Simulated assay, not measured.
Amino acid sequence: MLVAAAVCPPTPLITLQLDDLRTACRAAIAALHDARPDALVVVGGAQAATAYGGRAAGTLRPWGMDVTAGREGPVLPLSLTVGRWLLGDRAPDGFQSVALDAPIEECLQLGEKLGKIAPKVALLVMADGSACLSARAPGKYDEAARPYNRLIADAIAQADPGALAALDPAHADRLWVSGRAALQVLAGAAGTRRYEGRLLMETAPYGVGYFAGLWT
């Protein structure tokens, strides 16, 4: 059963700057540990769904940063690498990527499966919002991006798995919401259980929506 979840952004910039956001993410991660889960799994989007062991590592060298996280040879995709870095010295019990374009039902089923791997499960969900929030954003500015981003922020703040499960993949793709699939894995793990949600921080310094949130 899912007992706690944190949502953090998979941006490599958090390793070099965005100090306030990094602090908020580590506060959320500390709360995951405080929940004393039997299993802690890092979830993030990638090209395909793949499970990795807890000792797996990743590197940010392809993004021009001499940063490696983990204990074995680097194999993790970007989202999971950033999650591993945020965890510091405390390795998770495993990593799970989900295809960025995975259908909703596939994401929900994966989340439900992760929620059953141990009596008490915690998830570190690496997911961001729209990358179309300003003229300087990676994606083309879209006036629909801010309301969509607010929908995600509210779902995190209110611990509303139904709202996350209802995110439309086509709309998310248009607005460059790369975290959509990972957020729907969280929705699947949560199911119909009730949680207390907290949005510790929301920011968009480069036109990309970043969140630090916690469900307990």
Rank of each mutant, 00 (worst) to 15 (best):
L2A: 10
V3Q: 08
A6Q: 04
P9H: 09
P10W: 06
T11S: 14
T15C: 05
L16K: 11
L16T: 15
Q17V: 13
L18N: 00
D19C: 01
D19P: 02
R22C: 13
A24E: 09
A24N: 08
C25E: 07
R26A: 00
R26W: 02
A27I: 06
A27D: 14
I29W: 09
D34A: 15
P37R: 03
D38L: 02
D38Q: 01
A39E: 08
A39R: 14
A39V: 05
V41W: 06
V42C: 02
V43C: 08
G45P: 00
A46W: 10
A46V: 12
A48M: 10
A49T: 15
A49M: 12
T50V: 15
Y52E: 02
A57F: 06
G58D: 06
T59A: 06
T59H: 02
L60P: 05
L60V: 05
P62D: 04
V67M: 09
G70K: 01
R71E: 14
E72A: 14
E72C: 04
G73D: 13
P77Y: 07
L78M: 13
L80Q: 01
V82D: 04
R84P: 00
W85Q: 02
L87M: 13
D89Q: 14
R90L: 10
A91Q: 11
P92I: 10
P92A: 10
P92H: 11
P92V: 12
D93M: 00
D93T: 07
G94F: 07
F95E: 04
Q96V: 03
S97M: 05
S97A: 13
V98Y: 02
V98C: 03
A99R: 12
L100C: 08
D101W: 12
P103N: 10
E105H: 14
E105L: 14
E106Y: 05
L108A: 08
L108H: 11
Q109G: 13
L110K: 06
E112A: 15
L114C: 05
G115Y: 11
P119D: 15
L124D: 09
L124N: 07
L124G: 08
A127R: 08
A127T: 12
D128G: 14
G129C: 07
A131D: 11
A131L: 04
C132H: 00
C132G: 01
L133S: 03
S134N: 03
A135D: 15
A135C: 01
A137P: 12
P138H: 10
K140S: 09
D142Q: 12
E143Y: 06
A144L: 13
R146H: 11
P147V: 12
N149K: 02
R150K: 10
A153I: 08
A153G: 15
A155R: 07
A157P: 07
A157E: 13
A157H: 04
A159T: 03
D160W: 01
P161K: 00
P161D: 00
P161H: 03
A163D: 04
A163V: 11
L164I: 05
P169K: 11
A172C: 13
A172T: 05
L175P: 09
L175R: 09
V177Q: 07
A182I: 04
Q184Y: 07
L186C: 02
A189V: 09
T192E: 15
R194S: 15
Y195H: 09
E196W: 03
E196V: 10
E196P: 00
R198H: 13
E202F: 01
V208Y: 03
V208P: 03
F211A: 09
A212H: 08
G213F: 02
L214Y: 13
L214G: 03
W215K: 00
